[in-house]
């Protein structure tokens, strides 16, 4: 019983991080039709910024804030200096689909190398703000820690902020409209290019939070977040790729799924099980769990 509770709680906090990564991928995909592999690099760069700030000030919250800002800036930078140029020259055809993928893979390599050049390739720790030891209930110690609870809280707050932006603000309406129909948005006076850049910035910020939250329980290296990117993608596809709600549901389901496998079957099967899970979802519901007419506004 305790084991089940544990699995669910750990699954939720793991899934919460996947959800954030997944949101950052969905935001970029639905607004620019770019599968952003560079997100792993963007997130790792932001996490190194957090490491640096944490090392100098010892303040996790300041470190998180700096990571969010650097993630947003880097996202905006990539859109402004790479994606806009790319789409100026290729507007349609198979190249339009392939070029951004190649470009983001290239960017991933560049960012990783740059990060390795600046901070070295040896692993770095990121100090957590609260204990990562399991919570004690009576004589029992749960693997679920105060830090896991904090992850859930932070992700919940981020989701609330995103929901507010997308449902209640002019920026949110511009972001949705530009993603769904750039031409009608332009004709309505929306500055679509600028809005897209803001979308990349928000995606970069989400990826940064995911990276920072995932790191204290493991270690930081130039490619330490690659696995998170893969899980983020799997979650995004499970959720149907088009909706933020889908990204969250996909992330949570994936987190629960892999934690159940890790706790009840064996932790060596975690990576494999994520793909088995993906294949099952694609076989049963090829368009993802949150799909169909209603998905894109969610």
């Amino acid at each position: 019983m305790l084991k089940l509770l544990n699995t669910i709680l750990i699954g939720l906090s793991t899934g919460a991080i996947y959800s954030l990564m997944s949101i950052s991928l969905v935001l970029v995909w639905r607004s620019t039709r770019v599968v952003n592999f560079a997100q792993a690099g963007q997130a790792v760069f932001s996490t190194y910024i957090a490491y640096e700030v944490s090392l100098r000030t010892g303040n996790f919250w300041l470190a998180l804030l700096c990571a969010v800002l650097s993630g947003a800036l880097l996202g905006a930078f990539i859109d402004f200096f790479f994606m806009r140029m790319l789409f100026k020259h290729v507007t349609s055809g198979p190249i339009r689909a392939i070029a951004p993928v190649v470009a983001t893979l290239g960017l991933l390599g560049i960012i990783r190398s740059a990060v390795g050049y600046i901070w070295g390739v040896e692993v770095k720790p990121l100090e957590p703000p609260v204990s990562t030891d399991g919570i004690r209930i009576g004589s029992e110690v749960l693997p679920f820690s105060t830090y896991d609870a904090l992850i859930l809280l932070i992700v919940f707050v981020v989701l609330m902020i995103l929901t507010f932006i997308f449902q209640r603000t002019s920026l949110g309406l511009s972001l949705k409209a530009s993603a769904f129909s750039p031409e009608i948005s332009r004709l309505s006076g929306v500055r679509v290019d600028l809005t897209r850049t803001v979308g990349w910035a928000i995606a970069g910020a989400c990826g940064a939070i995911a990276g920072v939250l995932a790191t204290p329980t493991s270690l930081l290296s130039p490619n330490s977040l690659d696995i998170l990117l893969v899980f983020g993608f799997v979650a995004a596809v499970i959720g149907g790729l088009e909706s933020m709600l889908g990204a969250v549901v996909g992330g949570i389901l994936l987190g629960l799924g892999v934690t159940f496998i890790a706790n009840y079957v064996g932790s060596t099967l975690v990576f494999l099980s994520a793909f088995v899970f993906l294949i099952i979802v694609l076989l049963v519901k090829p368009a993802g769990i949150i799909s169909g007419k209603r998905s894109r506004n969610a």
Binding site: S174, A177, F180, S181, I184, L187, S188, G189, N297
Partner: peptide
């Protein structure tokens, strides 16, 4: 649009995923 020229393009140019009100608000966002 900012200079007062507004175009309703061919084929019921609304954004289907948005609500009626969001579509209207979109026109005045700028």
């Amino acid at each position: 649009v900012r200079n007062g020229v507004s175009h309703v393009s061919e084929g019921k140019s609304v954004i289907p995923e948005l609500t009626v009100e969001e579509n209207l608000d979109l026109g005045a966002l700028w």
